[in-house]
Design a protein around this nucleic acid. Structure first.
Length: 617
DNA sequence: TTAGGGTTAG
């Protein structure tokens, strides 16, 4: 390609900026060649613009080679290099560049470099360094720079200190759009919803940028519903969606709440807006379908990301397959990922060891754990140790699990001990179970699940006095078990169920259904778990109580709706274990319909009928 | 040249 004459420096600069914003590697390389030929490469601001275009187009190596070819890098080029290190490398590599800038090239940080430095502190959550930089900013000539202060607002918010963020924000005299967005985002991400909304609605105008900041902050702080409703508001206000950021956030919200109908609408909307091939959004859809138990669609969304599947795409699919018990597929995906040249990250290994845990593939789990550091330079974190511990525990390697917990280089947390304790119960190792429960009680005396696990341990050993003592201790300490919730999405409606609470208007239907279900279970030789002591109840009531106590009411409700001819998906918070699986199989075979179950650890409250179909259009 | 918005686990 030849540029038609005359090509001014101004035109070349505009072209470079377009190449950076639209991620055009071929154009970037072409301009690079042209700059070399016309001896413009070393004149400012070409080196920094070109560097920027390379990094934005994912050509990091080209960018670093370019930097090394410039004998006297100026502060602009250093600023770009530092921004790239903040985005793609470690804090230590960032700081070594920063030191080189000062001691080798004798350049002092300007407002651009300070903003980048604060941004790096935020990304790496280095509050200590962030405070030092803040102190430097206050005594520097940039103490009232809006951009630097906006990044400080962001840094404190990301470090979980919204009060400090507000202190900086209040010190900004003339608040720009950037500082307002940073504060709205900070409030929302820290769960300060009222403050976020107040500031947001007081803004004279709202761009898609600030809408995204608010919605994504809400989604990340576990307020997905508010996020989805605001997305509807945003569409009503007529805000133009000109990139995939806000869509990714709302897709993530629908994934978190397992709202398949909403997720599908968002998929249609994304296609109609032309973001079908956006990788980030594609990743969000892979995750959404997997979390909604539609693993086939998840795989289809994954296959649609034709080119440049990134580590997030692969990891999302690996975790999705693992969560559906398809460990072989997870491991095969990992092999494909490595052969395609994508380097796994720490989350990939969490997913892989989790996959092994599901099918008891102990040797493979150990092999993957060892290869993390050896082959990929990733130091196993506490999460990885807990995953390995879970794998060993579930598969009955209790003594190995116990020695692992002793030698691991981290202080075991609640999850580590709980994994071991529940395995002790499963495999009947009472002595070890009591020992572990003791550790867990010391660590988290206020957590109800510990007492429940401990009382289960005693129950397995037949020590009923100790069971009663554990329960009594719980009562004395006024520890309440958090109620379990289940929810079902039926067509356009979501219904929330709490264990032990039967909606009155459904009582008759549910009782009739349970009777049918119990008869079928007995016919197939399944003996219901009657360890719960149920006094003074007639047979129907007892059966109902059994279901209520084990969160299976939602399943029963699913069957009820299914029998009436509607498609049913039983979603989050249904514990998929033991007898519950049997019930699920029975229901699907009785009703002849597909019923999909997902197990989750988080609780989400859900109100009927909100965000119904069509709101996004 | 910088800043504010995004997707994967727990």
């Amino acid at each position: 390609m030849q540029f038609p004459p005359p090509v001014t420096a101004q035109i070349l600069l505009s072209l470079l900026r377009s190449a950076a914003s639209s991620q055009l590697p071929a154009l970037t390389r072409h301009i690079h060649a042209h700059l070399l030929k016309s001896c413009l490469l070393h004149s400012s601001p070409f080196p920094s613009s070109l560097f920027n275009a390379y990094t934005k187009s994912d050509l990091h190596l080209d960018a670093y080679i370019l930097f090394d070819e410039i004998p006297h890098p100026d502060i602009c080029l250093y600023s770009s290099l530092l921004a790239a290190h903040a985005r793609y490398n470690s804090l230590s590599s960032f700081l070594s560049i920063f030191r080189r800038m000062i001691s080798v090239h004798f350049l002092l940080p300007d407002d651009f470099v300070l903003a980048t430095l604060v941004n790096a502190c935020a990304r790496f959550l280095s509050l200590r360094l962030g405070r030092q930089v803040h102190a430097y900013v206050l005594v520097s000539t940039f103490s009232s720079d809006d951009i630097v202060k906006s990044s400080l607002v962001d840094m404190y918010s990301k470090c979980g200190l919204p009060n400090d963020a507000r202190w900086v924000f209040d010190s900004i005299e003339l608040k720009s759009f950037v500082s307002l967005t940073a504060m709205v985002s900070g409030y929302a991400a820290n769960g300060w919803i009222a403050e976020a909304l107040e500031l947001f609605w007081r803004m004279p105008e709202r761009s898609v940028f600030v809408w995204t900041a608010l919605i994504s902050g809400l989604v990340r702080s576990g307020n997905g519903f508010e996020g989805l409703n605001l997305f509807v508001e945003m569409r009503r206000e007529g805000t133009r969606i000109d990139d995939a950021f806000v869509l990714s956030s709302v897709v993530s919200a629908s994934a978190d709440m397992a709202m398949l109908a909403i997720g599908k609408q968002l998929h249609c909307l994304s296609v109609s807006l032309g973001y079908e091939s956006n990788m980030m959004l594609g990743n969000a859809f892979v995750d959404m379908y997997a979390k909604c138990s539609d693993i086939a669609s998840s795989r289809m969304a994954f296959d649609k990301i034709l080119m440049n599947k990134c580590v997030v795409s692969w990891t999302t699919m690996i975790v999705g397959e693992a969560q559906h018990g398809r460990a072989e597929e997870s491991l095969a995906l990992f092999d494909r990922m490595v052969s395609s040249g994508v380097k796994p990250n720490e989350i990939t290994f969490v997913g892989l060891i989790y996959a092994c845990s599901h099918i008891g593939l102990v040797w493979k789990g150990r092999e993957l754990f060892d290869s993390m550091l050896k082959d990929y330079g990733i130091k196993p974190s506490l999460k990885h140790y807990t995953c390995l511990l879970d794998l060993l525990s579930r598969s009955g390697h209790l003594s190995e699990a116990e020695s692992l917990i002793q030698i691991m280089p981290y202080e075991p947390d609640e999850a580590s001990w709980a994994a071991l304790l529940s395995a002790c119960n499963k495999h009947g190792d009472i002595q070890l179970g009591i020992h572990v429960a003791d550790k867990l009680l010391r660590l988290k005396p206020q957590v109800s699940s510990t007492y429940i696990l401990l009382s289960n341990t005693y129950a397995i050993a037949g020590k009923w006095d100790s069971v009663a003592n554990a329960r009594k201790l719980m009562d004395e300490m006024e520890i309440k078990k958090q109620p379990g919730y289940s929810w079902i999405e039926v067509g356009r409606e979501g219904c929330l169920f709490q264990a032990g609470v039967v909606p009155l208007h459904m009582r008759e239907n549910i009782l009739a259904l349970l009777k049918e279900l119990m008869e079928e279970m007995k016919r197939r030789g399944y003996v219901p778990d009657t360890s719960s002591v149920l006094h003074d109840l007639d047979e129907d009531e007892k059966e109902l109580q059994l279901f209520m106590h084990s969160e299976r009411l939602a399943v029963a409700f699913g069957l009820l709706k299914s029998a009436s001819g509607m498609t049913i998906r039983v979603l989050k918070n249904l514990r998929v274990c033991g007898d519950c699986h049997t019930v699920m199989k029975l229901i699907s075979s009785i009703s002849g319909r597909e019923i999909v179950v997902r197990d989750a650890n988080r609780f989400h409250h859900f109100e009927c009928g909100r965000c119904s179909c069509g709101d996004f259009w």
